[in-house]
């Protein structure tokens, strides 16, 4: 292994960490909010809302993220009304914004399924108890259903976060200079494939390890009531 190239790779790839974390942070935030809305639609009593959420989930989970990125970045630009609309063009015109959009919509589909499972696992008895205690529907959701659902969903959701981090590497295909983008550029200059991508992989591993540790800490805090012994 060429240490000089390795050193250069670390320096270069570090520049992409901020972009990767930005992609992850914004995509997860948007994806979670949208996923929660979709999950609520899935468990609502309206057949129409259920179906909309179901089809959304099926489309985004059933097609590859790379295809979605290409459709947004290259595909939507073909339509004149998109090019003529400043807001839409701002969203899909730049690689970073487009990557955030695709990642957000993709993770929202998976998140909705995870949260739906969590919401459905809340015992009916607890919802009835909250009703009987005098809670409005919104308050019931905020104080009982959501807190219990998120505790149930957290282990599966930590998996989804890892997939989002790994998914950001595809953003390099639409000109976003994140970890993989910088690694690819350096590789085209030096052809030191192994060193560069081993280090890039190590960066992802560190980010994911830290992420898992953070989620685990949150999980431990939130599920104290389960681990407490008599």
């Amino acid at each position: 292994m060429d240490l000089e190239i390795a050193q250069r790779a670390v320096t270069t790839i570090t520049k992409g960490v901020t972009v990767t974390l930005t992609l992850v942070g914004i995509s997860v935030a948007i994806g979670f909010c949208l996923g929660l809305c979709l999950a609520m639609m899935r468990v609502s009593s309206s057949r129409l809302l259920q179906k909309i959420a179901e089809y959304y989930s099926a489309i985004f989970r059933g097609t590859p993220l790379l295809v979605q990125l290409f459709l947004f970045y290259y595909g939507l630009g073909q339509f004149e009304f998109v090019r003529n609309n400043p807001v839409l063009w701002w969203v899909i015109g730049g690689g970073l914004n487009c990557a955030i959009l695709a990642l957000s919509l993709n993770t929202a589909a998976y998140t909705s399924e995870i949260l739906r499972g969590g919401l459905m696992s809340v015992p009916v008895g607890l919802i009835e108890a909250a009703k009987a205690a005098g809670m409005s529907r919104a308050l019931r959701f905020r104080r009982i259903e959501f807190p219990l659902a998120i505790r149930q969903a957290l282990p599966a959701y930590s998996n989804e976060l890892i997939l989002v981090v790994k998914g950001t590497s595809l953003a390099s295909t639409i000109t976003v200079m994140e970890i993989t983008g910088h690694a690819k550029r350096l590789m085209s200059q030096t052809y030191a494939i192994f060193e560069i991508f081993a280090i890039a992989g190590l960066f992802y591993l560190v980010i994911n390890t830290l992420l898992v540790l953070v989620v685990r800490r949150i999980e431990t805090r939130l599920t104290r009531y389960q681990t407490a012994s008599r």
Partner: peptide, 20 residues
């Protein structure tokens, strides 16, 4: 509605909120 009746309900399996 249930929340306006001010009833106390004790459920068969208690239905205590586990996170509280």
């Amino acid at each position: 509605a249930a929340q306006d009746r001010r009833i106390g309900f004790v459920f068969q399996h208690y239905a205590l909120f586990p996170h509280m």
